[in-house]
Design a protein around this nucleic acid. Structure first.
Length: 880
RNA sequence: GGGAGUUUAGCUCAGCUGGGAGAGCGUCUGCCUUACAAGCAGGAUGUCACAGGUUCGAGCCCUGUAACUCCCACCA
């Protein structure tokens, strides 16, 4: 947009988006200046995607966050991003491992810890760079610092501090428990990392012989291979059928081990056969039963879910091969009673989809009950609120029923657990600093090989990034943070853990608001995923339609927390909106010979100027109120309507005569008003569509360097012109009615007609005469107070406060006209009946608010007045 | 089994504390009107899932029903 007379006719974002972004960066506008006189606004943002590919969900996160940040920055807040986390360490490691295995035929164990971590680190750097470059494309004003993606010194310090503190308080403990084990990732998973899927399986009914030869017990199982680890069979103590069985000994098929029959409340008499095989090392319930009855725990699988030496002849087989072999062998021995189809819930790893194996294992756990209490209170008493509110219920539900959190992972990439075991005396020492000798006996120690769940360190993000545990200026000033923006799919993983961690370690809720958005789905409502191949690349959309169009699409048309479907048609509509803005600006610039941006004297303002300023002012109010309520979509649609309908379709058309007529004394005023309204509207829109607004604002007369560091408009009482607004509405209503009549009669716009306006509000319509000529195809508009000199055959249009006559006699079909008038009459009578029905209702008049009653009365008057005119017209028509 | 959500125009969805049903896309009619055909003007299309209730008044609040979606949950 260098030369204002040579601006391209269509909006072409590729011409300016990169240039503008680079300018923002070089001028340093992203850096929030730490000015303690201003209020801080801190936003915590979700982790960047480990794959290095910006996906649509991430684009949505970025857009919403950037809208809030830009808005607050323009309002003078000291805005700070807290970007990214080191989450996804596991996913990164798994990707690297897969690559090593496939391309180089080696494993992490072949490489050794040091070399392997270097490989992961290279990978993270590469993807870190890529994702940052991609984020620039959507205009994200986050001051990205790649190092913050990583497990930097500060973060490590915070993690150790937290671990040791929790350990010393007894809130972290080590223990053997049944955990979810992913045989593909070869690591433990927390409960939240397991996804449950309904799977079709089988129910195998198997005979376990009684040792004394008195018969069999029939049990049913969905996992026959766990039979190898059985150490008992349980029945319900109340079950009459099996009363005599309790205490007897069974022979475990295929294995030959002698196992007891025990009685335990856990068994449901009415499910299956009423007898349950107990495998304490491979099932959480059985584990509990086993503890109660002091049963041996026999773990029959290796880490990769192959059968171990306890499995005898099945050793080395994969769990599913072993299942087949065992079933076959049971069948051969006549111990398989029957096989039923049975669908059941199976846990799968949320990263790789492998069916998880419940396995007994020694792991580190966080005791959750004491931590959950303050986290529940924080939301209950409103220190942290969810938007929309309903997500607090989901959060509460989880918090109140939370189980202990398994935090150790059998991986190498991550924060290593700061626990040291003495090789001499076996003492476990947890320490903030690395130690080499046992504090108890002075023997050599070795550190725990495992690392922490990445969510453990991510949970500290709001304060660890600000320097905690040190008492830094930043922590003091920016913490607690203002808003966390994230999708509802991450509430359990991250949000809840940040809250309880913050409560425990800082005593404060980490953020004031949690702004939850939905998922972006494809046009058929499916989750976008790589395996379905239905993912839409945001970068391709940006390239084709521009970042502003994508941002508009993502920010509009859906309510907070609801999923949205991504339609390319919606992006096109957004692009069309950008094009509309582009052309309105082009029009403005082409008609500008002023060089400053100021509001003209009120006395110079014409009716339409006051009207647009008043409407603009209302828009400022609506937009700011809605953003403050996190109703970004509503705010944006306020702007859309104002820009397209009000500013472009009406105001620009209304002022054209003044702009084109160089003799017109109010032409300059129109230029000032156009400039003022347009540039301020660009400011209102800037958080949503940063590029196009910057480009336009730079070309309009302005003060300051960049729209992004200009002040956001505020509601101004002096710009409220309610009387002019109503006057313009009368005129506009009349214009619309005339257009409507002409369209009905198929009168081409080229056929002009004299327009006679009969009204008792002559002052209003007198001001609007020129608008009728320009916008309603009048050859000449005449305002008069009675019907003198009007052909009875003229086309008439009845509107509030006026009756309009168009002498288009030759086009009038008397019959049709009468029909139309009758229809009009019927409609008005209907309205009057409705209004009178209300006003005659004693309940309504006595109980409804006065404002509503007055409005109804005013409508009644208006309709009756219009009906009178219609009736008079019918009468005169019939006389012809 | 527990919890949450959804049901409004042909499609995708808004509709914020109850006060005459909206947008975009699509569709139909007429326009190349000197900012924009990625446009302008005008039109059509809804038992607001169903049944009750509260209220002067219900798309909105309450109760129940149905269908769909999602989350959580150790029934072998």
């Amino acid at each position: 947009m260098q030369d204002k007379n040579n601006i391209s006719k269509t909006y072409n974002p590729s011409e300016f988006e990169d240039r503008i972004y680079n300018n923002w960066v070089t001028k340093g506008y992203f850096h929030a200046e730490v000015d303690k006189t201003k209020k801080p606004f801190t936003i915590v943002i979700p982790p960047p995607n480990v794959t290095g590919q910006l996906h649509m969900g991430h684009a949505l996160d970025e857009t919403l966050q950037d809208i809030l940040i830009r808005y607050k920055r323009m309002q003078g807040y000291n805005a700070l991003w807290i970007p990214g986390t080191d989450h996804a360490g596991i996913a990164t490691q798994i990707k690297v491992e897969a690559e090593l295995r496939e391309k180089e035929g080696i494993t992490r164990y072949d490489l050794g810890r040091e070399k392997f971590l270097e490989r992961v680190w290279d990978w993270k750097k590469m993807y870190g760079d890529r994702i940052i470059n991609q984020l620039k494309k959507i205009g994200s004003s986050c001051d990205w610092d790649r190092e913050r993606f990583t497990m930097d010194e500060g973060c490590s310090k915070a993690v150790r501090e937290v671990f040791v503190n929790l350990y010393n308080k007894g809130l972290i403990y080590q223990g053997s428990r049944i955990i979810n084990w992913c045989p593909h990732c070869i690591t433990a998973l927390s409960d939240a990392e397991v996804e449950h899927q309904e799977q079709a399986g089988h129910f195998w009914h198997i005979k376990y012989p009684i040792k004394d030869g008195s018969g069999y017990v029939i049990i049913a199982t969905t996992r026959p291979e766990t039979l190898l680890g059985d150490t008992a069979v349980a029945v319900n103590p109340e079950d009459e059928r099996y009363k005599d069985l309790v205490g007897k000994t069974l022979i475990l098929p295929l294995v030959g081990r002698e196992i007891p029959v025990i009685a335990d409340e856990y068994v449901d008499k009415d499910f299956g056969t009423g007898c349950v095989k107990i495998t304490p090392a491979h099932d959480p319930n059985d584990f509990e039963v086993g503890k109660r009855h002091n049963l041996e725990q026999i773990k029959v699988m290796n880490d990769d879910a192959t059968i171990n030496h306890y499995g005898g002849k099945y050793e080395g087989m994969d769990r599913y091969d072993a299942r087949k072999a065992i079933v076959r062998d049971l069948e051969e021995q006549g111990l398989l009673v029957k096989v039923e189809d049975h669908s059941h819930n199976v846990g799968t790893c949320y990263r790789c989809g492998t069916t998880v194996e419940p396995i007994i294992s020694k792991q580190w756990f966080v005791k959750m009950k004491p931590l959950a209490k303050p986290a529940i209170d924080a939301v209950k008493n409103g220190d942290t609120s969810f938007i929309p509110e309903r997500f607090s219920k989901i959060y509460m539900n989880w918090m109140e029923n939370v189980l202990d959190w398994c935090i150790s992972r059998q991986l190498w990439w991550g924060h290593r657990i700061p626990a040291f075991y003495c090789d001499e005396c076996g003492e476990t020492t947890v320490s903030k600093e690395d130690i080499t000798t046992c504090p108890k006996c002075g023997g050599k120690v070795h550190q725990d090989e495992d690392v922490l769940d990445t969510w453990f360190s991510s949970a500290l993000w709001p304060f660890s990034t600000l320097g905690w545990p040190d008492k830094t200026k930043e922590l003091d000033y920016f913490y607690p943070t203002s808003v966390l923006v994230t999708g509802y799919d991450i509430i359990f993983f991250w949000v809840s853990r940040m809250v309880f961690s913050a409560m425990e370690h800082t005593g404060k809720a980490p953020f004031k608001h949690v702004f939850i958005h939905g998922l972006v789905r494809d046009s058929q409502g499916r989750k976008m995923s790589k395996s379905l191949g239905n993912g839409i690349d945001p970068l391709e959309i940006i390239e084709q339609y521009g970042a502003d169009a994508l941002r508009f699409t993502l920010a509009t048309g859906n309510a907070p927390g609801n999923d949205m479907r991504f339609y390319i048609e919606r992006v096109e509509a957004s692009r069309n909106f950008a094009n509309k803005i582009w052309n309105a600006s082009r029009f403005t610039l082409m008609n500008l010979d002023i060089t400053e941006n100021k509001l003209p004297d009120v006395s110079d303002l014409q009716l339409e100027d006051k009207w647009i300023l008043s409407r603009y002012n209302d828009t400022v109010k609506a937009v700011t109120e809605n953003i403050d309520k996190f109703e970004l979509g509503v705010a944006l649609s306020n702007l859309y309507d104002f820009i397209w309908d009000t500013f472009c379709d009406w105001y620009i058309e209304l002022v054209k005569p003044r702009l084109f007529d160089k003799e017109n004394a109010t032409g300059k005023t129109a230029q000032y008003v156009l400039t003022y309204v347009l540039s301020n509207t660009m400011k209102l829109l800037h958080p949503f569509m940063p590029f196009i607004t910057e480009e336009i604002w730079q070309h309009l007369p302005h003060e300051g360097e960049s729209i992004m560091i200009s002040r956001y408009p505020e509601y101004d009482e002096n710009l409220s012109f309610k009387a002019e607004e109503s006057a313009m509405e009368l005129i506009m209503g009349a214009i619309t009615a005339i257009r409507n009549r002409r369209a009905e009669m198929n009168v081409p716009p080229s056929k002009k007609a004299k327009t006679i306006i009969v009204t008792d509000k002559a002052d209003v319509f007198e001001k609007g005469k020129i608008f009728f000529e320009k916008l309603a195809s009048s050859s000449e508009a005449v305002v008069q107070s009675d019907k003198r000199g009007i052909d009875a055959n003229a086309v008439n249009v009845v509107v509030p406060s006026a009756e309009i006559f168009l002498p288009l006699d030759e086009l009038v079909d008397k019959e049709k006209e009468l029909q139309r008038l009758q229809a009009e009459k019927k409609k008005l009578e209907g309205e009057i009946k409705r209004v009178e029905g209300k006003l005659n209702n004693q309940g309504f008049v006595s109980k409804a608010p006065q404002k509503v009653i007055d409005e109804e009365k005013a409508k009644g008057v208006k309709y009756r007045e219009m009906l009178d005119k219609v009736l008079a017209n019918i009468a005169s028509m019939e006389q012809l």
